[in-house]
Amino acid sequence: MDEQGIGYITDMLVFALLISFASLLLVGASPIDPKIESTRYAASFAQSTLLALQHSTADEFGGFEYQLDTLSFEPNVPVLKGSTKRNLRHKALTQLLVEDALFNLHIEAEGVGLEPLGPSWGMKSELREFLKDVLDKLIGGRFGYRLIVRTLPLDLGFVRVHFESESKNFDEGAQRKLCSETIVATLPISQEELTRRIQKVLDTTLELEPDIGAEITLELWS
């Protein structure tokens, strides 16, 4: 092989190398970031879902009802069948969430509840199940999700007043949080009334104002 032949082959090899390099550069040069795009879609989806929770009534998802628990506070009363049922079909889903938060607001000292369970304590578990069904329908398997309802804890050192509830559907092992959207809704009680109730349970005057807001956070997971 003469020198011209070697030069030609070298020229071709360099050319091939440059083309490969250019191709590599082109492969990674998309004007759209799929990660951002999916995050954006998830955020938009989460916001729509939160709006749906505010506007949809329980009736639109088959209705919601729960049973009052009366044994804990009216043990000797002849309770009639059917009178403990609470059918809340007309309530918006966020209404159910904040009402549940109010009914089951936990006042505890070192992890021990200071007041007995109220008649509506059973609403929490029923609502969690119901919400899971609702979110499964709304999100429809596109994402994993976690809906968290919580109040800002009122921490008085020895006593803590708070509420937290969670409904979720995702495999924690192999997932990535795409977005977390939060709205604020207030509890169905006035500030003064909530303060009075907590003071009554604690039998002391509160120096801090309890929070009447509840955060409703929806996380979507891939």
């Binding site: 506070f73 009216e74 609470r86 109010l102 009914f103 008649p119 009680i189 009554k200």
Partner: peptide, 14 residues
């Protein structure tokens, strides 16, 4: 959602 008194306690319920 209103209060209900029972056994000396005050609950809020439907």
């Amino acid at each position: 959602p209103l209060t209900y008194d029972a056994m000396g306690e005050e609950f809020i319920t439907h």
